[in-house]
Simulated assay, not measured.
Amino acid sequence: MSRAGAATPGAAVLVIGATGTTGSRTVAGLAAAGHTVKAAGRSGTPVAGAEPVRFDWYDPGTHAAALTGVDRVYVVPPVGDPDPAAVVLPFLRRARAADVRRAVLLSASSIENGGPAVGLVHQALPDIFDEWAVLRPSWFMQNFTGGHEHARRIRTDGTILTATGRGRVAFVDAEDIAAVAVRALTDVRSPDTDLVLTGPEALSYDDVAAIVAEVTGRPVVHHSLSYEEMRDRLAALMPGEFAAMLAGMDRAIAEGAEDRVTDCVQRLTGRPARSFRAVAERELRGAH
């Protein structure tokens, strides 16, 4: 913990990706705590408790209005862009010039500082802002309850397909990610750090399938594919380079890359991270 920084009187927090999985929950948490929030998205869709503002990473003409009256920003990089730094870094420099003093970046546990894609934004962040944090959550628990391919397949045929083998992941609740984001954005002292966010236990996909089956009362089975099988299957749905990257993430899980538990949620929010079973019961019980 380093530099102190009370919120600028009357200033707002800008949440980019305000209708997304973590952005919507971050907006709700900020609004519930009494903060002024600007909810940024491509459509400028109204979000409860916030001022909607249209924002498009690829349209710099939308950036000035989004930054007006803002002193902190939650940054969700453009999804699916292989080089997000090309658009995110110019925006962040513009934000700093507009007196935004704190930025909280959403990255991922699988992407190291200086690594590819968002890792390059992570690396540059401390040189742009005096107050900053990078949230690197593990895989979302909501991948099994919302609109993700895993959740859809569970609903349609009771299967989960991965190339993770017996590898384990400390899945994290999006509500916990948002709670950490709220604290990182609003605490008097900025964390100025890299926060790897996980749930309280590491689970294999076999474990996940068993818990979902118990909660929903329907059979759910994890089928483990080879890296090549997963890559080729994904390549039928998306560009080959992206398919190979996603299959490679599964292979990294199989090799133990995500088999770790941190205490960041507890340290930042003052309460334990939620378990996968608790989230499954909250979001899936009675839904199937």
Rank of each mutant, 00 (worst) to 15 (best):
G23A: 03
A243N: 04
I16G: 00
V172I: 15
S43N: 13
A7P: 07
V261L: 04
A236I: 07
L125I: 12
V212P: 09
L14M: 06
T193E: 13
F144P: 00
T68W: 05
L268C: 13
P46M: 11
G29I: 06
V73H: 10
V180R: 08
A236S: 15
G115W: 10
F129K: 07
A18N: 03
T45K: 15
V73F: 02
P46N: 05
E112T: 13
R277V: 11
Q142K: 02
F91K: 01
P52A: 11
V118G: 00
E241R: 13
F129V: 02
A163R: 04
T164I: 00
V261S: 09
F140Q: 01
A18S: 11
Y74G: 00
R218Q: 15
I128E: 01
Y58C: 00
P60N: 10
T186K: 10
L135D: 00
E149K: 10
A117L: 10
V261M: 04
V76Q: 02
S190M: 06
A170I: 00
T198L: 04
V188M: 11
D176R: 12
H150A: 13
L197R: 07
L161V: 15
R155E: 13
G10D: 01
E175I: 12
R42Q: 14
G29R: 07
T269D: 09
F276M: 10
W57I: 01
A278N: 01
A124W: 03
V76R: 02
A31G: 09
F276L: 08
A86F: 00
V172W: 05
L185K: 11
T262A: 11
A117F: 14
R101T: 14
I154R: 01
V220N: 04
F91N: 10
L125K: 04
D192N: 15
D81M: 06
I160W: 03
E175S: 13
R93W: 07
G69K: 08
T21H: 05
V182G: 02
P200N: 09
G158A: 04
Y74I: 02
A108K: 07
R72A: 12
Y58V: 07
A124P: 05
A254K: 02
M1S: 15
A18G: 00
H223W: 12
R274M: 04
A65S: 13
R94I: 05
E51V: 13
P77D: 05
V87N: 07
A28H: 09
P126H: 02
G17E: 01
S109W: 11
D176E: 11
A48E: 14
S275E: 07
L135V: 01
V47A: 04
A163L: 01
G270D: 05
A65R: 12
P84H: 08
P52N: 08
A31K: 06
E131C: 05
L67G: 11
A32Q: 14
A124I: 09
T45D: 05
A252C: 09
F129G: 07
T21G: 05
V118S: 10
P191R: 03
R271G: 07
P219I: 12
L185P: 03
A108G: 14
R152S: 10
V180T: 08
S110E: 11
T262P: 07
H63P: 06
F144K: 02
